[in-house]
Design a protein around this nucleic acid. Structure first.
Length: 451
RNA sequence: GUGGGUGUAGUUCAAUUGGUAGAGCACCGGAUUGUGGUUCCGGCUGUCGCGGGUUCGAGUCCCGUCACCCACCCCA
């Protein structure tokens, strides 16, 4: 019979069991980290009515969204987690308590060309804080702490949280009389690191029609660098010329000043006046996180402050601040760079039990004992050679194999082999369980996801 | 959407100026009866992406097509 060639669509990540385990661990770290800051878990449908997801209209979303019809229904796959959140908050406004802090880890879909580190289906891990009418900028200051917590808990050190404030940029461009162009200018300046100063100036002057001396002022402005405090000090020099700028500077100062209290080391944080990133609804603080050793892969976590999350769905004013971790991309990079700890236990079970007697009772009882003790156990009763079963345990990197043959059953013990050390013990069931438990704790000790 | 590249066993790749396909890894089996990972021996697999053309003859040249990859755009 002719069989169909199996294939997975381009841009869709499909993992083997061991990497999937690592992915799950990463998700778990993210979940726990988010929980530590008082965020509540949320899940929303992957499919929504197109009119809801496309309420904003125009732009990239329209071009890239997966849209289809089912009967009369015009449906779309969610493009990000923020728009569904907006709908959710608008819809359940009266049932929610504000500030509403939620986290959500879910797949999103973008019908663009797949590329290295760029997927069509990928996980985003989002947190957002939504205020009712107003939202304290202290929330902006807390975000870097959460990012830092997630990345450092994963075992990463070489990353940098970059922060900027759009009010500062917009205010600055207003000072130059370039308000109408600020979007274009920001987009251009954002590419500085990639294309260089000369090219940026060329685009500003030749393509956008920015007068030469103003382009130079822009370049001078974005070239402000140094430690966060030094940058703030330099920015103070521009104070008093534009109210929006001043407001942004106040917000940025707040973020910087509380970093220490929030436990964010200064080496993992920088004020970067070039970043403008993100969807165009960002209005204040913006964040971007870069892996210092892999600048080429792009952002793995970005976000910012927006004035009005749900303007398309409600008259209520709902400002918010949030970030999105590009989990799939992050995982892809970590794997590609060999940064996933190979010593991390990824076996589907802790113990593989091999019964070798007609009566499976003792083996099943032992499995039950282990499971009651919180130890993952699997029976292997298939009609296979003993060697094949050992090989199975080995390939899956299962840490313990237990043998239950005539000898063991008759003398009331179980034989247990530590597959990593090769040592084998023959002890009573309860003692073996205790031994395994202690051994697992030892093997898991300091098991960071990244190594 | 625009530009470039590539398509050969499960996988990574190889195949002299066009002459009807190989290697490593993986996989499977064996090296005496209840012990894996190392080693040794043996074995398996391909419509050479698909369709057409040139040719005595094409994996190797030409056209088309599809798929994938890379860059741009945009972004996680």
């Amino acid at each position: 019979m002719a069989v169909l060639k199996p294939r997975t669509l381009s841009g869709f990540m499909e993992l083997l069991p061991a990497p999937q385990q690592q992915m799950e661990r990463i998700m778990e770290v993210i979940r726990q980290s988010f929980s530590l800051y008082g965020f509540t878990p949320l899940d929303t449908p992957i499919i929504e009515a197109s009119e809801v997801l496309l309420a904003k209209g125009g732009g990239e979303t329209e071009k890239q969204i997966y849209r289809f019809t089912k009967g009369d229904a015009d449906l779309s796959l969610r493009f990000d987690l923020t728009v569904p959140l907006a709908k959710y908050v608008a819809m359940h406004y009266s049932e929610l308590s504000f500030p509403f802090r939620r986290f959500q880890i879910g797949k999103v879909y973008r019908g663009e060309r797949a590329q290295r580190g760029r997927f069509r289906e990928f996980y985003q891990a989002d947190i957002d804080v939504i205020g009712d009418g107003k939202l304290s900028p202290i929330n902006d200051a807390e975000i870097p702490a959460i990012i830092y917590r997630v990345f450092s808990t994963l075992g990463l050190n070489r990353f940098q949280i970059r922060v900027n404030n759009r009010k500062i940029l917009n205010g600055f461009y207003a000072m130059l009389g370039l308000s109408e162009l600020s979007g274009e200018v920001m987009r251009t300046v954002d590419k500085l690191e990639k294309i260089g100063e000369a090219t940026v100036r060329g685009i500003l002057v030749d393509d956008l029609g920015v007068p030469g001396e103003k382009a130079d002022e822009i370049l001078k402005f974005i070239a402000i660098s140094g430690g966060s405090k030094a940058i703030l000090a330099a920015l103070e020099g521009y104070r008093g010329r534009n109210p929006l700028f001043d407001e942004g500077l106040d917000e940025l100062s707040l973020v910087v000043n509380y970093l220490d209290s929030f436990g964010v080391p200064s080496e993992n944080f920088v004020v970067d006046l070039t970043i403008a990133r993100g969807l165009d609804y960002y209005t204040g603080t913006v964040y971007e996180t870069a892996l210092l050793d892999h600048p080429e892969v792009g952002s793995v976590c970005s976000g910012g402050r927006y004035d009005n999350l749900a303007e398309y769905y409600t008259e209520k004013e709902l400002p918010g601040v949030g970030i999105s971790i590009g989990l799939t991309r992050l995982f892809y990079v970590l794997g590609e760079q060999g940064m996933l700890n190979p010593d991390l236990l990824t076996a589907p079970t802790d113990v593989l039990i091999l019964p070798m007697t007609e009566d499976l009772g003792p083996a099943i009882s032992f499995a039950t004992l282990l499971r009651q003790d919180g130890i993952r156990a699997q029976l292997h009763c298939e009609d296979k050679k003993f060697k094949a079963k050992m090989s199975y345990a080995d390939k899956l990197r299962i840490p313990y194999v237990v043998f239950l043959g005539e000898d063991e059953v008759n003398s009331g013990v179980v034989a247990c082999k530590d597959m990593f050390s090769g040592e084998q013990t023959k002890l009573a069931a309860v003692e073996t369980a205790a031994l395994i438990k202690a051994g697992l704790t030892e093997k898991n000790k300091g098991a960071v996801i990244l190594g």
